[in-house]
């Protein structure tokens, strides 16, 4: 089976800083791929390269058999790639439903307005925002805005969803709810590439993990393998708390580890 998303030797430089260096990886259809790494490892830059906010200086990005290298974000969105932002970007003066209608209207299906509203409603239900549909985005709590980001991306009916720290800033109950939502999205056949700092969450969610450090791939594999990788642990030693979490995981391998790689 061909890869849904394939990065081939992708590089991005900002002035003198090599943010992403010669990065290659493939992602399968239906997979949840976790992306971890210390702060400044180039994770968010990588998202911006994939969805066209930045054009890479070198390499190719192929999505669903189409070369999307250097395409504008709205073109890439039409191909069926949606994302959320680490810092939420709602249309503050629109209701939750209207926000999601934008996603549905201009997403992969390019729906007419009325059908887009139905798709938007469905996405709102999946994200658990149904009682907020008529609320202006501006009045939502931070957890609500995070869910709105997810719902809006989902309304676009993407094939691949990029999630940038959707759990950050949420309380434990909200995190649990969000993890449930992410699993449900995957069960609908949508592939997910996720950046997350909460080790426990990403280890249990992901089928596979890629570790970035200084813009390069440090390790790749099932969560349990990655967590035991001495290089990875070393990279995280700058951040003792995270290193500890990683080691905690190595001792009790994640539940469904590599079982899903068929």
């Amino acid at each position: 089976m061909t890869a849904l998303l394939s990065l081939q030797k992708v590089g991005k430089r900002f002035g003198g800083l090599q943010a992403v260096h010669d990065l290659s990886f493939d992602m399968r259809q239906g997979e949840i791929l976790g992306l971890i790494g210390p702060n400044g490892a180039g994770k968010s830059t990588l998202f911006n390269l994939i969805n066209g906010v930045f054009a890479p200086n070198s390499g190719n990005i192929v999505f669903n058999g189409i070369d999307i290298t250097g395409q504008r974000p709205f073109v890439i969105a039409r191909h069926g790639l949606a994302r959320t932002h680490q810092i939420v970007q709602p249309f503050t003066n629109m209701t939750v439903l209207e926000n999601c209608t934008v996603g549905a209207c201009f997403g992969r299906e390019n729906l007419p307005l009325m059908r887009a509203r139905d798709a938007a409603r469905e996405a709102i239900v999946i994200a658990g925002l149904e009682d907020r549909a008529a609320t202006l985005a501006l009045h939502l709590t931070i957890a609500g805005k995070k869910r709105l980001e997810l719902a809006r991306a989902l309304a676009a009916q993407p094939m691949l969803l990029l999630l940038d720290e959707v759990l950050a800033g949420l309380n434990p109950a909200e995190i649990e709810h969000m993890i449930g939502v992410i699993r449900r999205i995957r069960d609908r056949g949508i592939s997910i590439l996720i950046i997350e700092h909460l080790m426990q969450a990403i280890m249990s969610l992901s089928d596979r993990i890629i570790v970035l450090n200084y813009g390069e791939k440090l390790a790749e594999g099932a969560p349990s393998e990655v967590a035991r990788n001495p290089q990875v642990i070393e990279a995280y030693l700058g951040d003792p708390k995270l290193a500890e979490q990683l080691q905690g995981h190595a001792e009790q391998p994640a539940s469904n580890g590599s079982a899903r790689h068929v």
Binding site: V53, P73, A77
Partner: peptide, 9 residues
């Protein structure tokens, strides 16, 4: 920016 990322041309 958010609009473009959602596919608004």
């Amino acid at each position: 920016d958010a609009a473009a990322i959602l596919g608004v041309p």
